[in-house]
Amino acid sequence: MNFWLVLTVNSVTFGGLLFLLSAGFSLIFGLMRIPNLTHGSLFMLGAYVGATFVVGLLGFKLNFWLAAILATLAVAALGALAERLLLRRLPGDQLAQVLVTLGLSFMAADFCLMMWGGDPLNVATPDGLGGFVRFGTIAFPMYRLAIIVIAALVAIALWLLLDRTRLGAMIRAGVDDPDMARVVGIRVSQLFTIVFALGAGLAAFAGIIGGPILSVYPGLDQDMLPLALVVVILGGSGSLLGSFVGSIIVGFIYNFGQALLPELAYFVLFMPMLLVLLLRPQGLFGRHVP
């Protein structure tokens, strides 16, 4: 009983992290029609930049949350820059855009290895969240519950942004029909930059928030990117609800798969994605086929 409950909480926590990671991935995919293969790298970069401040590699230590915000802003700016300087130069050529993001992910991985070395960085749990919460006889780590709360708050904020603001309406229009959106006067190419920066920032935020659980190590990017891909294909690109549901599903499959079928964990993870690609290519909540 205890085992199952702990596994369930871990799954929801991991699902929350995945949601932070994949919400941006999904929006980028929905709007620009490309899987952004640097998304894992942005997650890792955010984790490393944030960890640098938290651990104090530069000679001074920052508060965890301040470090998280700084890392988010820095990586968001980097994402905007990459979109402006590189992807922008290949308008409409989706294959070339995917290849550029792939090349960038190589560069980012090597850059992190050069800057931070090969040893994992352990990020301490932020002050005040290191303890446990007791429900009857079972104790849950408080930080894991905090991640669930943070993910829920971000989900609500994103939903308000997309559903209640002018910018959100423009993004939705761009996802549904970019040509028509252009015709009615929306600057879709400007949306590309905004959405790319937003997605990069969210990925970086997920990276640093996940730091105390996952720690920060080389190869983190390649561990996370396929998961984001699975989430978005399951949920459907460009749909916030899709990435939310997809994240929770993948969080459960990943944790239960690791615990119950360790030999086939990845097989169990990618099988649903393959089935969705074959049977419902637009994903559970998606509006168009990639």
Partner: peptide, 11 residues
């Protein structure tokens, strides 16, 4: 840093 170089050549 050959991996970096490889990525840069790619881009």
């Amino acid at each position: 840093r050959w991996n970096f170089l490889l990525g840069a050549i790619f881009v």
